[in-house]
Design a protein around this nucleic acid. Structure first.
Lengths: 212, 212
DNA sequence: CGAATAGTGTCTGTGAGACAATATTTA
DNA sequence: TAAATATTGTCTCACAGACACTATTCG
Protein backbone atom coordinates (compact mmCIF):
# COMPACT_ATOMS: atom_id res chain seq x y z
CA UNK A 1 0.00 0.00 0.00
CA UNK A 2 1.40 3.35 -0.97
CA UNK A 3 2.15 5.69 1.90
CA UNK A 4 -0.54 8.18 1.06
CA UNK A 5 -1.27 10.95 3.50
CA UNK A 6 -4.49 12.83 3.77
CA UNK A 7 -5.04 16.59 3.98
CA UNK A 8 -3.96 16.57 7.65
CA UNK A 9 -0.75 14.83 6.73
CA UNK A 10 -1.77 11.65 8.51
CA UNK A 11 -1.50 8.18 7.11
CA UNK A 12 -4.66 6.19 6.63
CA UNK A 13 -3.95 3.72 9.40
CA UNK A 14 -3.34 6.51 11.91
CA UNK A 15 -7.08 6.87 12.15
CA UNK A 16 -9.09 4.67 14.46
CA UNK A 17 -11.58 2.69 12.48
CA UNK A 18 -15.04 1.49 13.38
CA UNK A 19 -16.20 -2.08 13.05
CA UNK A 20 -18.60 -2.31 10.15
CA UNK A 21 -21.39 -4.83 10.10
CA UNK A 22 -24.19 -5.67 7.72
CA UNK A 23 -27.61 -6.68 8.99
CA UNK A 24 -30.38 -7.88 6.75
CA UNK A 25 -34.13 -7.89 7.19
CA UNK A 26 -35.23 -10.94 5.21
CA UNK A 27 -38.96 -10.47 4.77
CA UNK A 28 -41.50 -13.01 3.66
CA UNK A 29 -45.24 -13.60 3.74
CA UNK A 30 -46.67 -16.08 6.25
CA UNK A 31 -50.37 -16.53 6.95
CA UNK A 32 -51.30 -13.47 4.92
CA UNK A 33 -48.95 -11.22 6.82
CA UNK A 34 -45.47 -9.82 6.41
CA UNK A 35 -42.87 -11.54 8.60
CA UNK A 36 -39.17 -11.16 9.18
CA UNK A 37 -36.53 -13.80 9.72
CA UNK A 38 -34.81 -13.62 13.12
CA UNK A 39 -31.93 -15.66 14.48
CA UNK A 40 -31.27 -16.50 18.10
CA UNK A 41 -28.27 -14.87 19.73
CA UNK A 42 -25.86 -17.18 21.47
CA UNK A 43 -26.10 -15.98 25.00
CA UNK A 44 -28.63 -16.77 27.71
CA UNK A 45 -32.35 -16.30 27.31
CA UNK A 46 -34.20 -16.17 24.06
CA UNK A 47 -32.78 -13.11 22.41
CA UNK A 48 -33.38 -12.45 18.75
CA UNK A 49 -31.64 -10.41 16.11
CA UNK A 50 -31.42 -9.99 12.37
CA UNK A 51 -28.88 -12.14 10.57
CA UNK A 52 -25.72 -10.16 10.03
CA UNK A 53 -21.96 -10.20 10.15
CA UNK A 54 -18.92 -8.03 10.34
CA UNK A 55 -17.47 -7.40 6.92
CA UNK A 56 -14.26 -9.16 5.98
CA UNK A 57 -11.23 -7.49 4.54
CA UNK A 58 -11.70 -6.32 0.98
CA UNK A 59 -15.23 -7.69 0.87
CA UNK A 60 -18.11 -5.66 -0.51
CA UNK A 61 -21.15 -5.04 1.64
CA UNK A 62 -23.21 -7.11 -0.73
CA UNK A 63 -20.84 -10.04 -0.44
CA UNK A 64 -20.93 -9.77 3.34
CA UNK A 65 -24.72 -9.87 3.27
CA UNK A 66 -24.76 -12.94 1.04
CA UNK A 67 -22.17 -14.65 3.18
CA UNK A 68 -23.97 -13.92 6.44
CA UNK A 69 -27.26 -15.20 5.07
CA UNK A 70 -25.65 -18.35 3.77
CA UNK A 71 -23.90 -19.02 7.08
CA UNK A 72 -26.60 -18.00 9.51
CA UNK A 73 -29.74 -18.91 7.66
CA UNK A 74 -28.76 -21.19 4.81
CA UNK A 75 -30.25 -18.88 2.21
CA UNK A 76 -28.66 -18.38 -1.17
CA UNK A 77 -29.28 -16.28 -4.21
CA UNK A 78 -30.70 -13.16 -2.62
CA UNK A 79 -30.47 -9.70 -4.12
CA UNK A 80 -30.25 -7.50 -1.04
CA UNK A 81 -30.88 -3.82 -1.32
CA UNK A 82 -28.98 -1.35 0.81
CA UNK A 83 -31.16 0.75 3.08
CA UNK A 84 -29.34 2.94 5.57
CA UNK A 85 -26.35 3.08 7.88
CA UNK A 86 -27.22 2.91 11.56
CA UNK A 87 -24.59 4.67 13.61
CA UNK A 88 -26.04 5.79 16.91
CA UNK A 89 -23.35 5.85 19.60
CA UNK A 90 -23.90 2.97 21.96
CA UNK A 91 -26.15 1.07 19.58
CA UNK A 92 -23.89 -1.95 20.03
CA UNK A 93 -22.57 -2.77 23.49
CA UNK A 94 -19.53 -4.49 22.02
CA UNK A 95 -17.97 -1.22 20.91
CA UNK A 96 -17.92 1.18 18.00
CA UNK A 97 -19.98 -0.63 15.41
CA UNK A 98 -21.72 0.76 12.35
CA UNK A 99 -24.38 -1.36 10.70
CA UNK A 100 -25.32 -1.09 7.07
CA UNK A 101 -28.91 -2.31 6.94
CA UNK A 102 -30.20 -4.28 3.98
CA UNK A 103 -33.52 -5.77 2.95
CA UNK A 104 -34.77 -8.49 0.66
CA UNK A 105 -38.00 -10.44 0.20
CA UNK A 106 -38.14 -14.17 -0.47
CA UNK A 107 -40.64 -16.98 -0.48
CA UNK A 108 -41.15 -18.70 2.86
CA UNK A 109 -40.16 -22.03 1.32
CA UNK A 110 -36.59 -20.76 0.96
CA UNK A 111 -36.27 -19.94 4.65
CA UNK A 112 -34.93 -22.21 7.39
CA UNK A 113 -37.30 -23.63 9.98
CA UNK A 114 -34.86 -24.92 12.57
CA UNK A 115 -34.75 -24.23 16.30
CA UNK A 116 -32.49 -21.20 16.08
CA UNK A 117 -34.74 -19.34 13.69
CA UNK A 118 -38.00 -17.46 14.05
CA UNK A 119 -40.36 -15.94 11.53
CA UNK A 120 -42.00 -13.09 13.40
CA UNK A 121 -44.89 -11.02 12.10
CA UNK A 122 -43.61 -7.50 11.63
CA UNK A 123 -46.55 -6.08 13.57
CA UNK A 124 -45.82 -8.33 16.55
CA UNK A 125 -42.06 -8.50 17.01
CA UNK A 126 -40.31 -9.85 20.08
CA UNK A 127 -37.66 -7.64 21.66
CA UNK A 128 -34.68 -7.47 19.33
CA UNK A 129 -31.06 -6.90 20.12
CA UNK A 130 -29.27 -3.65 19.16
CA UNK A 131 -31.43 -1.31 17.09
CA UNK A 132 -32.77 -4.10 14.94
CA UNK A 133 -36.39 -3.13 15.54
CA UNK A 134 -35.62 0.16 13.87
CA UNK A 135 -34.02 -1.64 10.94
CA UNK A 136 -37.09 -3.84 10.50
CA UNK A 137 -39.34 -0.78 10.46
CA UNK A 138 -37.10 0.81 7.84
CA UNK A 139 -37.16 -2.36 5.73
CA UNK A 140 -40.90 -2.85 5.93
CA UNK A 141 -41.57 0.69 4.78
CA UNK A 142 -39.18 0.30 1.84
CA UNK A 143 -40.82 -2.93 0.69
CA UNK A 144 -44.32 -1.51 1.05
CA UNK A 145 -43.42 1.47 -1.10
CA UNK A 146 -42.38 -0.94 -3.84
CA UNK A 147 -45.53 -3.04 -3.57
CA UNK A 148 -47.83 -0.03 -3.80
CA UNK A 149 -47.35 0.44 -7.52
CA UNK A 150 -45.63 -2.56 -9.10
CA UNK A 151 -46.85 -6.17 -9.35
CA UNK A 152 -44.88 -8.35 -6.93
CA UNK A 153 -41.55 -6.60 -7.45
CA UNK A 154 -39.76 -9.20 -5.32
CA UNK A 155 -40.96 -12.03 -7.53
CA UNK A 156 -42.54 -14.11 -4.77
CA UNK A 157 -45.13 -15.58 -7.11
CA UNK A 158 -42.86 -17.01 -9.77
CA UNK A 159 -43.53 -16.65 -13.47
CA UNK A 160 -47.27 -17.14 -13.73
CA UNK A 161 -50.11 -16.21 -11.40
CA UNK A 162 -53.70 -15.10 -11.31
CA UNK A 163 -54.91 -11.65 -10.35
CA UNK A 164 -56.32 -13.11 -7.16
CA UNK A 165 -52.98 -14.56 -6.11
CA UNK A 166 -51.31 -11.28 -6.86
CA UNK A 167 -53.90 -9.28 -4.95
CA UNK A 168 -53.79 -11.51 -1.89
CA UNK A 169 -50.03 -11.15 -1.83
CA UNK A 170 -50.21 -7.37 -2.03
CA UNK A 171 -52.85 -7.29 0.68
CA UNK A 172 -50.56 -9.32 2.92
CA UNK A 173 -47.52 -7.16 2.25
CA UNK A 174 -49.35 -3.85 2.58
CA UNK A 175 -51.67 -4.99 5.36
CA UNK A 176 -54.69 -3.43 3.69
CA UNK A 177 -57.68 -4.74 1.76
CA UNK A 178 -57.66 -3.89 -1.95
CA UNK A 179 -60.65 -3.61 -4.28
CA UNK A 180 -60.37 -6.42 -6.87
CA UNK A 181 -61.47 -4.29 -9.82
CA UNK A 182 -59.29 -1.29 -9.05
CA UNK A 183 -56.32 -3.53 -8.32
CA UNK A 184 -56.79 -5.37 -11.56
CA UNK A 185 -56.91 -2.18 -13.60
CA UNK A 186 -53.75 -0.92 -11.94
CA UNK A 187 -51.74 -4.08 -12.43
CA UNK A 188 -52.98 -5.54 -15.71
CA UNK A 189 -51.17 -2.98 -17.93
CA UNK A 190 -47.91 -3.96 -16.21
CA UNK A 191 -48.39 -7.66 -16.95
CA UNK A 192 -48.79 -9.91 -19.94
CA UNK A 193 -52.08 -11.78 -20.23
CA UNK A 194 -51.62 -15.36 -21.42
CA UNK A 195 -55.18 -16.27 -22.41
CA UNK A 196 -54.75 -19.42 -20.32
CA UNK A 197 -56.92 -19.90 -17.24
CA UNK A 198 -56.49 -21.64 -13.91
CA UNK A 199 -59.22 -23.12 -11.72
CA UNK A 200 -58.79 -22.54 -8.01
CA UNK A 201 -61.57 -23.77 -5.75
CA UNK A 202 -64.93 -22.24 -6.48
CA UNK A 203 -65.93 -19.74 -9.06
CA UNK A 204 -65.06 -18.78 -12.58
CA UNK A 205 -61.52 -19.74 -13.62
CA UNK A 206 -59.04 -16.89 -13.51
CA UNK A 207 -56.80 -15.76 -16.32
CA UNK A 208 -53.09 -16.39 -15.89
CA UNK A 209 -50.71 -13.44 -16.12
CA UNK A 210 -46.97 -13.29 -16.50
CA UNK A 211 -44.39 -10.58 -15.94
CA UNK A 212 -43.60 -8.42 -18.93
CA UNK B 1 -14.79 -2.41 26.85
CA UNK B 2 -16.17 -5.76 27.84
CA UNK B 3 -14.48 -8.73 26.24
CA UNK B 4 -17.46 -9.76 24.14
CA UNK B 5 -16.99 -12.47 21.58
CA UNK B 6 -19.10 -12.94 18.53
CA UNK B 7 -20.70 -16.12 17.20
CA UNK B 8 -17.35 -17.30 15.84
CA UNK B 9 -15.76 -16.82 19.25
CA UNK B 10 -13.60 -13.96 18.07
CA UNK B 11 -13.19 -10.64 19.83
CA UNK B 12 -14.34 -7.53 18.06
CA UNK B 13 -10.84 -6.20 17.45
CA UNK B 14 -9.71 -9.45 15.89
CA UNK B 15 -11.47 -8.35 12.75
CA UNK B 16 -9.76 -6.07 10.28
CA UNK B 17 -11.73 -2.90 9.93
CA UNK B 18 -12.23 -0.64 6.93
CA UNK B 19 -11.63 3.06 6.97
CA UNK B 20 -14.97 4.84 6.86
CA UNK B 21 -15.34 8.22 5.25
CA UNK B 22 -18.23 10.58 4.67
CA UNK B 23 -18.49 12.58 1.46
CA UNK B 24 -21.10 15.22 0.89
CA UNK B 25 -22.56 16.64 -2.30
CA UNK B 26 -23.42 20.21 -1.34
CA UNK B 27 -25.75 21.37 -4.08
CA UNK B 28 -26.85 24.89 -4.88
CA UNK B 29 -28.33 26.89 -7.72
CA UNK B 30 -26.08 29.13 -9.80
CA UNK B 31 -27.16 30.87 -13.01
CA UNK B 32 -30.41 28.93 -13.16
CA UNK B 33 -28.70 25.57 -12.92
CA UNK B 34 -27.88 23.04 -10.26
CA UNK B 35 -24.24 23.09 -9.17
CA UNK B 36 -22.15 21.14 -6.71
CA UNK B 37 -19.38 22.34 -4.42
CA UNK B 38 -16.00 20.79 -5.11
CA UNK B 39 -12.72 21.18 -3.25
CA UNK B 40 -9.24 20.92 -4.70
CA UNK B 41 -7.19 17.93 -3.66
CA UNK B 42 -3.74 18.68 -2.28
CA UNK B 43 -1.57 16.99 -4.81
CA UNK B 44 -0.36 18.15 -8.21
CA UNK B 45 -2.65 19.24 -11.00
CA UNK B 46 -6.14 20.53 -10.59
CA UNK B 47 -7.97 17.57 -9.13
CA UNK B 48 -11.38 17.99 -7.60
CA UNK B 49 -13.40 16.01 -5.10
CA UNK B 50 -16.37 16.34 -2.80
CA UNK B 51 -15.69 17.64 0.70
CA UNK B 52 -15.37 14.71 3.06
CA UNK B 53 -13.45 13.23 5.92
CA UNK B 54 -12.71 10.04 7.73
CA UNK B 55 -14.90 9.62 10.75
CA UNK B 56 -13.38 10.11 14.16
CA UNK B 57 -13.70 7.68 17.02
CA UNK B 58 -17.16 7.58 18.51
CA UNK B 59 -18.41 10.24 16.12
CA UNK B 60 -21.69 9.86 14.26
CA UNK B 61 -21.74 10.07 10.49
CA UNK B 62 -23.78 13.24 10.71
CA UNK B 63 -21.22 14.84 13.02
CA UNK B 64 -18.43 13.86 10.65
CA UNK B 65 -20.27 15.47 7.76
CA UNK B 66 -20.80 18.70 9.68
CA UNK B 67 -17.18 18.74 10.80
CA UNK B 68 -15.83 18.11 7.32
CA UNK B 69 -17.96 20.86 5.84
CA UNK B 70 -16.95 23.31 8.53
CA UNK B 71 -13.25 22.52 8.07
CA UNK B 72 -13.08 22.16 4.31
CA UNK B 73 -15.68 24.62 3.15
CA UNK B 74 -16.51 26.87 6.07
CA UNK B 75 -20.18 25.94 5.96
CA UNK B 76 -22.25 25.58 9.10
CA UNK B 77 -25.77 24.60 9.98
CA UNK B 78 -26.46 22.02 7.29
CA UNK B 79 -28.90 19.17 7.62
CA UNK B 80 -27.25 16.47 5.52
CA UNK B 81 -29.23 13.49 4.41
CA UNK B 82 -27.64 10.07 4.12
CA UNK B 83 -27.76 8.60 0.63
CA UNK B 84 -25.81 5.39 0.14
CA UNK B 85 -22.62 3.59 1.05
CA UNK B 86 -20.11 3.32 -1.77
CA UNK B 87 -17.92 0.29 -1.31
CA UNK B 88 -16.52 -0.85 -4.63
CA UNK B 89 -13.14 -2.53 -4.12
CA UNK B 90 -10.42 -0.23 -5.35
CA UNK B 91 -12.63 2.86 -5.29
CA UNK B 92 -9.96 4.56 -3.16
CA UNK B 93 -6.31 4.03 -4.03
CA UNK B 94 -5.30 4.67 -0.41
CA UNK B 95 -6.70 1.36 0.77
CA UNK B 96 -9.91 -0.19 2.01
CA UNK B 97 -12.20 2.79 2.33
CA UNK B 98 -15.98 2.89 2.50
CA UNK B 99 -17.70 6.17 1.85
CA UNK B 100 -21.10 7.08 3.21
CA UNK B 101 -22.45 9.61 0.74
CA UNK B 102 -24.61 12.52 1.90
CA UNK B 103 -26.41 15.38 0.24
CA UNK B 104 -27.71 18.80 1.18
CA UNK B 105 -28.86 21.91 -0.65
CA UNK B 106 -27.97 25.44 0.42
CA UNK B 107 -28.06 28.96 -0.94
CA UNK B 108 -25.02 29.99 -2.95
CA UNK B 109 -24.43 32.89 -0.55
CA UNK B 110 -23.49 30.41 2.17
CA UNK B 111 -20.78 28.77 0.07
CA UNK B 112 -17.08 29.68 -0.03
CA UNK B 113 -15.66 31.37 -3.12
CA UNK B 114 -11.95 31.00 -2.46
CA UNK B 115 -9.26 29.58 -4.73
CA UNK B 116 -9.54 26.02 -3.48
CA UNK B 117 -13.25 25.73 -4.22
CA UNK B 118 -15.28 25.29 -7.36
CA UNK B 119 -18.99 25.41 -8.04
CA UNK B 120 -19.46 23.11 -11.01
CA UNK B 121 -22.70 22.70 -12.92
CA UNK B 122 -23.83 19.14 -12.38
CA UNK B 123 -24.30 18.65 -16.12
CA UNK B 124 -20.74 19.73 -16.83
CA UNK B 125 -18.50 18.30 -14.14
CA UNK B 126 -14.71 18.16 -14.32
CA UNK B 127 -13.08 14.81 -13.64
CA UNK B 128 -13.53 13.95 -9.99
CA UNK B 129 -11.39 11.82 -7.74
CA UNK B 130 -12.56 8.40 -6.49
CA UNK B 131 -16.16 7.60 -7.43
CA UNK B 132 -17.37 11.09 -6.63
CA UNK B 133 -19.04 11.54 -9.99
CA UNK B 134 -21.28 8.66 -9.10
CA UNK B 135 -22.07 10.22 -5.74
CA UNK B 136 -23.03 13.50 -7.41
CA UNK B 137 -25.37 11.67 -9.78
CA UNK B 138 -26.97 9.91 -6.83
CA UNK B 139 -27.36 13.19 -4.95
CA UNK B 140 -28.82 15.09 -7.89
CA UNK B 141 -31.44 12.45 -8.45
CA UNK B 142 -32.44 12.45 -4.78
CA UNK B 143 -32.83 16.23 -4.71
CA UNK B 144 -34.80 16.28 -7.94
CA UNK B 145 -37.24 13.71 -6.58
CA UNK B 146 -37.92 16.04 -3.65
CA UNK B 147 -38.39 19.10 -5.83
CA UNK B 148 -40.88 17.39 -8.10
CA UNK B 149 -43.75 17.55 -5.63
CA UNK B 150 -42.94 19.87 -2.72
CA UNK B 151 -42.29 23.62 -2.80
CA UNK B 152 -38.59 24.29 -2.23
CA UNK B 153 -38.06 21.50 0.31
CA UNK B 154 -34.51 22.67 0.99
CA UNK B 155 -35.69 26.16 1.96
CA UNK B 156 -33.48 28.06 -0.48
CA UNK B 157 -35.97 30.87 -0.82
CA UNK B 158 -36.39 31.83 2.83
CA UNK B 159 -39.74 32.58 4.41
CA UNK B 160 -41.55 34.55 1.73
CA UNK B 161 -41.48 34.34 -2.03
CA UNK B 162 -43.62 34.75 -5.12
CA UNK B 163 -44.81 31.93 -7.34
CA UNK B 164 -42.43 33.13 -10.02
CA UNK B 165 -39.42 32.90 -7.74
CA UNK B 166 -40.48 29.44 -6.67
CA UNK B 167 -41.04 28.28 -10.22
CA UNK B 168 -37.71 29.60 -11.50
CA UNK B 169 -35.98 27.78 -8.67
CA UNK B 170 -37.73 24.51 -9.47
CA UNK B 171 -36.93 24.91 -13.15
CA UNK B 172 -33.27 25.35 -12.26
CA UNK B 173 -33.17 22.35 -9.95
CA UNK B 174 -35.10 20.05 -12.27
CA UNK B 175 -33.60 21.41 -15.49
CA UNK B 176 -36.99 21.57 -17.17
CA UNK B 177 -39.43 24.34 -18.08
CA UNK B 178 -42.65 24.34 -16.07
CA UNK B 179 -46.01 25.76 -17.06
CA UNK B 180 -46.79 28.70 -14.75
CA UNK B 181 -50.46 27.86 -14.32
CA UNK B 182 -50.01 24.16 -13.69
CA UNK B 183 -47.12 24.81 -11.36
CA UNK B 184 -49.14 27.33 -9.39
CA UNK B 185 -52.05 24.97 -8.95
CA UNK B 186 -49.74 22.21 -7.75
CA UNK B 187 -47.88 24.34 -5.22
CA UNK B 188 -50.47 26.82 -3.95
CA UNK B 189 -52.34 24.28 -1.77
CA UNK B 190 -49.04 23.50 -0.04
CA UNK B 191 -48.38 27.15 0.80
CA UNK B 192 -50.00 29.96 2.73
CA UNK B 193 -51.09 32.99 0.70
CA UNK B 194 -50.37 36.24 2.53
CA UNK B 195 -52.52 38.68 0.53
CA UNK B 196 -49.46 40.89 0.29
CA UNK B 197 -47.91 41.51 -3.13
CA UNK B 198 -44.43 42.23 -4.42
CA UNK B 199 -43.48 44.17 -7.53
CA UNK B 200 -40.62 42.70 -9.53
CA UNK B 201 -39.75 44.36 -12.81
CA UNK B 202 -42.56 44.48 -15.30
CA UNK B 203 -46.04 43.16 -15.05
CA UNK B 204 -48.72 42.71 -12.48
CA UNK B 205 -47.42 42.43 -8.91
CA UNK B 206 -47.24 38.88 -7.63
CA UNK B 207 -48.77 37.58 -4.44
CA UNK B 208 -46.39 36.61 -1.68
CA UNK B 209 -46.57 33.08 -0.31
CA UNK B 210 -45.11 31.54 2.82
CA UNK B 211 -44.49 27.99 3.92
CA UNK B 212 -47.30 26.37 5.86
C1' DC C 1 -80.18 -23.47 -8.96
C1' DG C 2 -77.36 -20.73 -5.61
C1' DA C 3 -72.94 -19.37 -3.98
C1' DA C 4 -68.53 -17.92 -5.15
C1' DT C 5 -65.22 -15.88 -7.89
C1' DA C 6 -63.69 -13.43 -12.39
C1' DG C 7 -64.10 -9.83 -15.23
C1' DT C 8 -66.36 -5.59 -17.51
C1' DG C 9 -69.27 -1.32 -17.76
C1' DT C 10 -69.74 2.90 -16.14
C1' DC C 11 -70.29 6.92 -13.14
C1' DT C 12 -67.95 10.33 -10.32
C1' DG C 13 -64.40 13.02 -8.51
C1' DT C 14 -59.77 14.64 -8.82
C1' DG C 15 -56.01 16.44 -10.84
C1' DA C 16 -52.54 17.40 -14.59
C1' DG C 17 -51.79 19.61 -18.92
C1' DA C 18 -52.91 22.97 -21.97
C1' DC C 19 -54.81 27.11 -23.93
C1' DA C 20 -57.48 31.25 -23.47
C1' DA C 21 -59.12 35.23 -21.12
C1' DT C 22 -58.75 38.70 -17.69
C1' DA C 23 -56.05 41.74 -14.31
C1' DT C 24 -52.46 44.92 -13.19
C1' DT C 25 -48.35 46.98 -13.65
C1' DT C 26 -44.10 49.33 -16.11
C1' DA C 27 -41.90 51.33 -20.20
C1' DT D 1 -51.06 52.28 -25.38
C1' DA D 2 -48.10 48.10 -25.80
C1' DA D 3 -45.60 44.68 -23.50
C1' DA D 4 -44.91 41.89 -19.64
C1' DT D 5 -46.28 39.28 -15.96
C1' DA D 6 -49.98 37.32 -12.67
C1' DT D 7 -54.03 35.01 -12.04
C1' DT D 8 -58.23 32.61 -13.14
C1' DG D 9 -61.53 30.06 -16.27
C1' DT D 10 -62.24 26.15 -18.59
C1' DC D 11 -61.71 22.15 -21.59
C1' DT D 12 -59.78 17.62 -22.15
C1' DC D 13 -57.74 13.48 -20.80
C1' DA D 14 -56.40 9.96 -17.64
C1' DC D 15 -57.11 7.47 -13.81
C1' DA D 16 -58.53 5.90 -9.06
C1' DG D 17 -62.45 4.59 -6.36
C1' DA D 18 -66.71 2.70 -6.19
C1' DC D 19 -70.79 0.17 -7.38
C1' DA D 20 -73.38 -2.64 -10.41
C1' DC D 21 -73.78 -5.94 -13.83
C1' DT D 22 -72.42 -10.02 -16.54
C1' DA D 23 -69.72 -14.54 -17.00
C1' DT D 24 -68.35 -19.01 -15.49
C1' DT D 25 -67.61 -22.54 -12.50
C1' DC D 26 -68.52 -25.82 -8.37
C1' DG D 27 -71.52 -27.93 -4.93
Amino acid sequence: MTDYRDSSGRRLDDYPRPSVAVDTAVLTVVDDALAVLLVRTGEGDAEWRLPGSFIHEGETLRAAVLRSLRMKAGIDGLRPRQLHVFDAPGRDDRGWVLSVAHVDVVGVDRLPASEGHLLARVDDLPDLKYDHEEIVAFAVEAVRVDYRTAPDPAGLLGDSFTMRQLRLLHEAVLNVRLLPDTFRRTMAPQLRATGETWVEGRGRPAEVFQRM
